[in-house]
């Protein structure tokens, strides 16, 4: 599947997203210490790291949910460090947060309509068709309150929400979380497709091998700092070294 890649991106590809010395904290709890890396145009970047390393925090800073205490974030040519989340979203950055990120009190369809409309998607019905086409299981639950969906169905809806509106950069946190293997396969296929249409990806995932297989580059986060960054082939050994060894049962 590696041969599908258009070409290995080089450093001269302009950066779509660039973090420079980003520090972030939650009140008195510090989470990021000078994180710098970039996501070039048309590139899939994997963000890996052990638990609590700050992966979700990076995603939140990028999408404006958490404001950086220091450093800067540039996206699509703008300095978005101080932008509110809605403005970043409208500039073309879609973020699917970890966990159950759906509006529990809205129906499945309302969730999707909201996502599609607010970002100015012209034809809501097209967007809905696309979402239900990708996650056919959701179509059966169209009018169900999202809060009553099963865990996996809620994850599907979270992902569907960021797919209804076309974007320049897709940030997905804990991609395979709670999804059955068959669906995980489909989602990975879909991301590959999306990447091939020119959207950049920043993907956070606990199953490192899988996410590396669809990525061009990887960023390794250790305790709130970037420990390694580069093309997948180059950082592979660093990942082996930095992340705790894979237990034998998943070899």
């Amino acid at each position: 599947m590696t041969d599908e890649r258009p070409q290995a991106p080089h450093d001269d590809v302009p950066a779509l997203l660039e973090l420079r010395d980003v520090e972030a904290s939650y009140g008195p709890y510090r989470a990021l210490f000078g994180v710098s890396f970039s996501v070039p145009e048309r590139t899939a970047v994997a963000l890996v790291g052990s638990n609590g390393a700050g992966k979700s925090t990076v995603a939140r800073v990028v999408s404006g949910l958490v404001r950086a205490k220091a450093g800067s974030v540039r996206f699509a040519g703008h300095d978005v460090t101080r932008w509110p989340a809605w403005r970043i979203a409208r500039a073309g950055l879609a973020h699917a947060p970890e966990g159950r990120s759906v509006f529990a009190s809205l129906t499945v369809e309302e969730n999707l309509v909201l996502a599609a409309r607010a970002l100015g998607t012209r034809r809501t019905s097209d967007a809905l068709d696309r979402a239900f086409g990708t996650f056919s299981q959701l179509a059966a639950h169209r009018h169900q309150l999202a809060g009553t969906l099963s865990g996996g169905e809620q994850r599907m809806l979270s992902l569907a929400k960021v797919l209804v509106a076309p974007q320049r950069l897709l940030v997905v946190d804990e991609l395979s979380f709670g999804l059955a293997p068959a669906i995980v396969d489909e989602v990975f296929d879909m991301l590959r497709m999306i990447r091939n249409t020119g959207t950049s990806l920043l993907v956070i995932e606990q199953h490192v091998d899988r996410v590396l297989s669809i990525s061009d580059r990887a960023v390794v986060l250790v305790r709130g700092r970037v420990a390694a960054e580069g093309a997948v082939a180059d950082v592979g050994p660093a990942i082996e070294r930095l992340l705790p060894a894979h237990p034998q049962w998943s070899a």
Binding site: G178, Q206, P244
Partner: peptide
């Protein structure tokens, strides 16, 4: 246990096991 391993990293999954 309802999906105890989702969201765990490799090391924690080993602990869980």
């Amino acid at each position: 246990l309802d999906e105890p391993s989702s969201g765990l990293d490799d090391a924690e999954r080993a602990t869980l096991v």
